[in-house]
């Protein structure tokens, strides 16, 4: 029962994140969407490790590593977004067809 809850929550987080990626052009919101998708996947992975009698420790190790990777990626992305906003005032990527 609880496993289904974890899986459903993970799936909803991934769905929310994908919606954000597709619907929101602001770069900061896209970064948050990426983090939502990542968290949903990690939740799913954690639930996958809790199936048998004993708890499988490998997914926990993978999730911790994955969180560190996601943190590093988010930090670099936010840094780039801030640098772009300082330099050009843009908070969205300019359109290829009609650059501002």
């Amino acid at each position: 029962m609880s496993l289904t809850v974890f899986a459903m929550t993970g799936a909803s987080l991934v769905g929310l994140g994908i919606y954000g990626l597709l619907a929101l052009p602001q770069l900061l919101r896209r970064i948050i969407s990426f983090n939502l998708i990542g968290s949903g996947l990690f939740l799913f992975l954690g639930a996958a490790g809790a199936r048998g009698e004993a708890v499988d420790a490998v997914p926990q190790a993978l999730i911790i590593t994955g969180i560190v990777v996601a943190l590093a990626a988010s930090a670099l992305a936010v840094g780039l977004v801030v640098a772009l906003a300082r330099r050009s005032g843009l908070v969205v990527l300019p359109d290829e067809a009609n650059p501002r």
């Binding site: 990542g38 996947l41 990626a73 330099r87 843009l90």
Partner: peptide
């Protein structure tokens, strides 16, 4: 600014690919 835009566009593809 041009390099930052190219880098961010690359990053969005790269992050989507990673996920």
């Amino acid at each position: 600014a041009q390099a930052l835009v190219a880098a961010l566009r690359y990053m969005i593809f790269a992050l989507a690919g990673s996920l």
